[in-house]
Nucleic acid binder design. Structure first.
Lengths: 122, 122
DNA sequence: CGTCTATGTTGACATACGTCGAATCAGAGA
DNA sequence: TCTCTGATTCGACGTATGTCAACATAGACG
């Protein structure tokens, strides 16, 4: 059975239109909630290695099989990739036998904006 | 008793000379460990609000009393500030009655470098 | 000294998280 | 259809985390 299109993968775009640079002004509770979701997703060594592997892979995408050598079991890799996906940082697509992950394009821009160096407030 | 100068506050500089841009190449285990520490520290809404409050405050520093209105108890604020400090993101200094926190300068530069947009690898 | 205010520390608690092995699902191909 | 391989999901486990109330510490000021 598969007639329940209920559980959406949460927020597909969790970062994109989010927040001002970290140094511009205090974040509101909502902004903090949103941005923290991204930072949290990248706040694990394994996930960071997976993310950088995908982000730096030729073509901007990588097969799970190409990046799963990070010292943890394969289910754990899958678990982390799912978290990155739920956080809106990666997208995945199955092509035949393999599943490919790629970096959500808007994400890099949003991250760059977040960490824009502002002239250390007056 | 206070004759045990043992427990150092971990790594004062946890981010500064750390890693290449996220999109340049897969992080090594060590790089991931280091960078993840920073992301993790910012991966909590309360800490993110505290951090942005300090970072955007005039003079680049803020008294605890100025930023502790984030919806949690005072001990919790103190706890989070300590975490940001342990992660190397903030420094603190007591001046008379109040304690002032400021953003570790090298941190913003390191973060900026981390999120430099690289031309999505070939 | 004593006391008041501002912060930090401790102990306890519920929840979240990272991890694995086992089971399951998805295509490819015989 | 059966089976093989790649990937995800499930169930369980120990540990880390966020939170608070209670207590402790640090200066300031009488």
């Amino acid at each position: 059975m598969n007639a329940l299109p209920l559980l959406e993968p949460e927020v597909p775009e969790a970062v994109a239109p989010c927040c001002p640079p970290l140094t511009e002004r205090p974040f509101t509770a909502d902004e903090a909630e949103t941005a923290a979701r991204m930072f949290k997703a990248l706040g694990d060594p394994v996930r960071l290695r997976l993310f950088t592997s995908v982000a730096s892979h030729e073509g901007g995408e990588a097969c799970v099989c190409d990046i799963s050598d990070v010292g943890v079991s394969q289910p754990t890799v899958s678990h982390h990739l799912k978290k990155l996906k739920d956080a809106g940082l990666l997208t995945s697509e199955r092509r035949g036998t393999w599943v490919y992950y790629r970096v959500e394009p808007s994400v890099l821009a949003a991250m760059g904006k977040l960490l824009t160096i502002a002239p250390v407030a007056a």
